[in-house]
């Protein structure tokens, strides 16, 4: 799709300068996960681990098919299983591939204090540049989907890269290629949105009136989208946020108080300097010394 190099950044973390904008006509990519076609086989997890050379620990059985139990620095995508009884009393097994949503307005990137640690390419992929990461975990606070994980070993944050290394040479991500039932599709965001529309109509024809596309506006839309049978209740899909957006706290902490704080500090320094050059130091004069000796001397006499 595109050669993902420094010139292709459209957003860079902790950077006051505007990224290069000359190449402003870039096809945005998107990964569409059609939960109604997903059989929860974890081929995407397996392919992701194999392609990215990730091997987390062999865990234990914890009460469901969710293995490993949570995203980790070396678990970039994960099937989350939810046994749900619908209104008709029939059981539905909702299985959702969790992982980075590659938001249009990434909370991680906004929260990140390290310059160049998180970048967004022109095609929409949000990537962690590990060598610039300082391991502070702000990205975890910024992300509305609770995705980034900071490693306890190298103190760097990790998440799905949408296989930027494959996409940059024109291949599709590893999970997309592996998915046996074609539940994960990859292409331009326009194509994927249109294809999702067809899938939603087809699902509606099968009795899922509330089928819909999950492309949350709260984060400006995402480059990883879901087709859900029950788009009116995303939370039943193992906690998919109803209306994800960057937290107001993060917004405020990363927005207004930055300039205000700097201004406040600069003002104080300036005021002090101005006071110094106008009022000047408060020095002790001879009279004060005299009063002091006088006081001491009289006290000496009383006690002697």
């Amino acid at each position: 799709m595109s050669d993902l190099q420094a010139q292709d950044f459209i957003r860079i973390s902790a950077t006051t300068l505007t990224p290069p904008t000359a190449r402003n006509h870039e096809q945005e990519v998107a990964k569409l996960i059609d939960v109604s076609r997903c059989i929860g086989c974890k081929a995407c997890q397996s392919a992701c681990m194999e392609w990215n050379n990730l091997r987390p620990e062999v865990g234990h059985f914890e009460g469901s098919y969710d293995n490993p139990m949570d995203l980790e620095p070396s678990v970039w995508t994960l099937m989350r299983f939810a046994e749900w009884e619908n209104e008709k009393g029939d059981l539905e097994w909702l299985i959702r591939k969790d992982g980075c949503m590659h938001c249009e307005d990434p909370g991680c990137l906004k929260a990140c204090p390290a310059p160049g640690a998180i970048v967004q390419y022109a095609n929409g992929i949000v990537d962690f540049i590990s060598e610039n990461c300082i391991g502070c975990g702000y990205c975890e606070k910024g992300c509305p989907f609770n995705i980034p994980r900071v490693s306890k070993v190298d103190h760097k944050s990790y998440k799905c890269t949408l296989c930027s290394d494959r996409v940059t040479v024109g291949l599709e991500p590893a999970c997309v290629k592996a998915c046996p039932t074609g539940a994960i599709m990859f292409g331009s965001k326009a194509d994927m949105t249109e294809w999702a529309g067809e899938r939603v109509d087809e699902l509606k024809s099968r009795g899922f009136e509330n089928a819909g596309l999950y492309d949350p506006p709260g984060v400006g839309g995402t480059h990883v989208m879901y087709v859900l049978q029950h788009a009116d209740k995303p939370a039943i899909y193992a906690g998919l946020p109803e209306d994800p957006h960057i937290s107001e706290f993060v917004g405020f902490w990363k927005g207004l108080i930055k300039p205000v704080a700097l201004a406040g500090m600069a003002f104080t320094a300036a005021a002090a300097f101005l006071h110094w050059i106008t009022v000047g130091p408060n020095t002790v004069d001879a009279e004060d010394d005299h009063h002091a000796e006088e006081l001491i001397r009289s006290a000496k006499e009383k006690s002697a």
Binding site: L4, L17, P115, G116, V119, E131, D165, V169
Partner: peptide
């Protein structure tokens, strides 16, 4: 430092 941002992982 911004110019430091290296490109994508090389295609293996």
């Amino acid at each position: 430092g911004e110019a430091l941002a290296s490109s994508v992982r090389a295609f293996k």
